[in-house]
Design a protein around this nucleic acid. Structure first.
Lengths: 156, 156
DNA sequence: CGCTTGATGCGAGGTTCTCGCATTACTTTC
DNA sequence: GAAAGTAATGCGAGAACCTCGCATCAAGCG
């Protein structure tokens, strides 16, 4: 992997934003209004947002930012490891900021209520090791959006 | 969980087709040409096919079957538990016949070459139990399309 | 064989996402 | 602080995947 990113206070939006901007700059990428806004929105929520969601919220702040730009922005941020994306059954891809690069967590989605629950980062470690040994397949647990039924829907 | 793998001859297409048709009939559903063809195609391959794939192959046999019909057919077959569908990142949903209803397997997709590899049915059993206990979330490992990089792509 | 109604064919259209191209604006250099 | 070079954006067209309503057809029944 890469060198440990010295994140000071993990949930302080301003610090996260500053780090993200610094990373972009370090990689030779330009700091544009759309990029600032997308990072800002993601840094100030713990929700998992679709591009549509992001576009909507970014629009509320700065008018005229095109949907295609948001798509390109999240693509860029994913490539640089600044945000994670998970693919959901029956729906769009959702995005969320990477706070700790060494502990990106797993997700599960309820097929009844579409809610997303976060799971421990190490949940699939054992399985990953097993799959690597048996099948030579290197699991990326980040993208693994598991599915099932959540506590509430099972009860209801 | 038990391990009832390979009781009769699990890969005999004709037997599988016969069973599937019988199930449809038992459920009061009509046995139509499109349904026959979709089941037939799926029974004679171990690939994971998209609706587009299915439509193409069905068309080669009987002309005039509409794409929308294939969509409706797979939906019906999924509902009756005759086929499984998995949602893939960056692509369409793929379908494959359920051979053993007690041991539907897991899947992983290579993000480099888009290949799908089948994984043991019990791979996520431990994780599923853990998630259920800790989070009350009932995992459905059928839909869980894991992602990562396959042996070939890691080597290349 | 004819009836009933579930299933299909068809096309319109929705949603999610991509792409090419002209224009804008971020960064660097002077 | 202005000009230059080019990365990034805004825009619209359109691809890919999927859904739906409705008229028609045919599977299964007696």
């Amino acid at each position: 992997m890469t060198e440990p990113m010295g994140i000071t206070s993990p949930t302080d939006p301003d610090a996260v934003i500053h780090d993200a901007i610094a990373t972009l700059r370090r990689e030779g990428l330009r700091i544009t209004v759309p990029r600032r806004q997308v990072i800002d929105v993601l840094a100030r929520t713990d929700e998992h947002l679709t591009v549509e969601d992001l576009h909507e919220r970014v629009q509320e702040r700065t008018d005229g930012i095109h949907l295609a730009t948001v798509y390109r922005t999240v693509e860029t941020l994913v490539q640089r490891g600044l945000i994670d994306h998970i693919h959901l059954p029956h729906g769009a891809t959702t995005y969320h900021l990477v706070v700790d690069r060494n502990a990106s967590h797993c997700h599960a989605m309820c097929t009844d209520c579409d809610r997303i629950i976060d799971l421990p980062p190490d949940l699939l470690d054992g399985v990953a090791a097993e799959v690597l040994r048996q099948h030579g397949f290197e699991l990326n647990s980040r993208h693994a959006a598991l599915t099932g039924r959540c506590r509430d829907c099972r009860a209801g």
